[in-house]
């Protein structure tokens, strides 16, 4: 196994960890963290893809864009979580299930 494949394996594991977190944790902050882990996995994937296809320059600029967008999503979701905490007094995703059926 060469370096790139090893890193790709790392990406898959990191992505899996994030999805696992989304599937099982009920804590809203932890859910945001899980999303961030997935985001980081994707960023590493781009870095590997850049080296594999010898387009490092392109990959770098893409990664910067992704980081920006990723941060925006994190900011908005955290802002929402704060609102949830303030208005509903909970951080448990299970209690956020009044909209059903």
């Amino acid at each position: 196994m060469n370096d790139e494949e090893l890193t790709l394996l790392g990406v898959v594991i990191l992505f899996g960890v994030g999805v696992y977190g989304l599937l099982l944790t009920h804590h809203l902050i932890k859910i945001v963290i899980a999303l961030q882990i997935i985001g980081k996995a994707v960023i590493i994937a781009f870095a590997v893809a850049g080296t594999m296809s010898e387009r490092v320059q392109l990959a770098q600029s893409l990664i910067v864009t992704i980081i920006v967008a990723d941060t925006m999503v994190a900011v908005i979701s955290l802002a929402l979580v704060i609102q949830v905490k303030q208005r509903l007094g909970t951080l448990d995703a299970r209690e956020l299930s009044n909209l059903r059926r």
């Binding site: 908005i76 979701s77 509903l88 299930s97 909209l99």
Partner: peptide
């Protein structure tokens, strides 16, 4: 808020 959280995640 609930809808928003689900949507964004």
């Amino acid at each position: 808020l609930e809808a928003g959280v689900k949507y964004i995640v």
